[in-house]
Structures are given as structure tokens and as C-alpha cells.
């Protein structure tokens, strides 16, 4: 068990971070190259001002027509995105890892709160899953890739929760938890989770066209 633990927190972790950053960089670079050769008439209209204006509206809950018309999803989406970054970064156990491996230290979320927030993330994953199954409009457009993306995000939180509570065998669970986190990082550039790197550009483009050319709001 110890050897496996050493492996997943040691060499495999470094490999994961490398794959994550390299994957994101490669996807961004190749997409930019493709855009330069095929989407020049779109790139020509990109504007910092209107990109930021559009992003500012869409990162504000209920500031857009779409958010207002889907209140439950809006609350769930914002909470979910804040937590899936905040919890892994600021959890006490993780803060120790940041210090151990990267030599950076910052304040942590107290354990009981971290535990509670993890439950919130798990509940939100369940909400998204139920919505996929229950809402006919969402069910109709759901593909395998959407379930894969959800499962990839769900796994590290679920295993983390089980490990922290020591509900099943802790040693196995903590290894599964680390593996699940590593899978998520590696998968980000190659699955639906790639919206993490691309959404800022699609949003900016729409903001630029609507702001600079069409003189209309895109929210």
C-alpha cells in the first residue's frame, strides 16, 4: 500500500501536472493555429473592451437573460464552479501538500467546513445528474461525453469524502481519491471539461461581435 501511495503522490503526480499543463498548452496553441488559418474573419473583430464586458456580465449571477430564466441552474452552476476550485485548493490536507511539494503555504479551510462543502459539491453533482435524466430538454441533448465529464469531476470529491470520513478502507480510498484527482487534471484538456480553457475565448468572441459590430448586448 505504501509503495502505491508513494507512487501516486510522487512520480505519477508530477506526470499528471505535466500532462495537465502540457495538454492545455497544446490544445490552446493548436486551436489558435487553426483559428489563424480558418477563422480570420472572426479573430479580426476581437476586442479587449467588449470581451471583458461580456465576461463580466456572464460571471455575475442573474446578470444575463439566460441566468435569470434558469434560476435553480444558475445558483447550482455558480456554487459548483466556485467550490470545485476552492475546496481542492484550500482544504487543510491539500494545503499541507502544496507546502510539501511546491513550497507554497496559505491559510486553509477548517476540516469540518471542508467536509461540509464537499457534501455540497457531491449534492450538486447529483442535482446535475438528476436534471440530465429528468428534464426532457436536457435528456434529449445529453451524450456519453456529458456523463463522462460529470463522473470525472464527481469521483475525486466522492472518494475524498469517503476517505475523510473513513467510511470504507482509508488506505484504499485515499489512493483512489488521488488517482481520481489525477484523472481529472489529465482529462481537462481532452474532454468537455476543456471549456475550462476555451470558454473564455468563445465568450470573448461573442462579446466582441455584439459589442463592437452589432452594438447590442450579448447577455
Amino acid at each position: 500500500m505504501n509503495t502505491i501511495y508513494e507512487f501516486v503522490t510522487g512520480p505519477l503526480a508530477w506526470l499528471t501536472w505535466t500532462a495537465f499543463f502540457a495538454g492545455c498548452a497544446w490544445r490552446l496553441a493548436s486551436m489558435y493555429k487553426l483559428a489563424k488559418s480558418k477563422d480570420t474573419s472572426s479573430i479580426a473583430f476581437m476586442s479587449w473592451k467588449y470581451s471583458l464586458r461580456s465576461i463580466a456580465h456572464w460571471v455575475t449571477p442573474f446578470a444575463t437573460l439566460g441566468w435569470r430564466k434558469n434560476p435553480a441552474l444558475t445558483v447550482a452552476t455558480f456554487l459548483f464552479h466556485v467550490l470545485i476550485f476552492a475546496v481542492p485548493i484550500f482544504l487543510t490536507a491539500h494545503v499541507m501538500l502544496w507546502d510539501q511539494f511546491f513550497g507554497i503555504s496559505f491559510p486553509a479551510i477548517p476540516d469540518p467546513i471542508g467536509d461540509y462543502l464537499t457534501i455540497v459539491v457531491i449534492a450538486l453533482c447529483v442535482f446535475f445528474a438528476v436534471r440530465r435524466l429528468q428534464d426532457p430538454n436536457v435528456r434529449y441533448i445529453t451524450k456519453k461525453a456529458d456523463w463522462i465529464a460529470l463522473a470525472i469531476v464527481f469521483a475525486p470529491f466522492m472518494t475524498g469524502f469517503l476517505a475523510f470520513r473513513q467510511i470504507l478502507d482509508y488506505d484504499t480510498m485515499i489512493i483512489l481519491h488521488i488517482l481520481a484527482g489525477e484523472i481529472m487534471l489529465v482529462a481537462i484538456p481532452w474532454t468537455r471539461l476543456s471549456h475550462m480553457v476555451f470558454a473564455v475565448f468563445t465568450r470573448s468572441y461573442m462579446g466582441s461581435e455584439f459589442g463592437g459590430v452589432r452594438h447590442a448586448r450579448d447577455w
Binding site: 486551436m31 480558418k38 472572426s42 436536457v138 471549456h195 468572441y205
Partner: peptide
């Protein structure tokens, strides 16, 4: 090009 590719890949089917 990139526009269509990213649209089809990152539509989260929400």
C-alpha cells in the same frame, strides 16, 4: 475551423 470545433466540444448540454 476553431470556432465550430470549440462550439461542438464545449457545449455542456446544460
Amino acid at each position: 475551423g476553431a470556432r465550430l470545433k470549440v462550439y461542438s466540444e464545449t457545449c455542456m448540454r446544460c
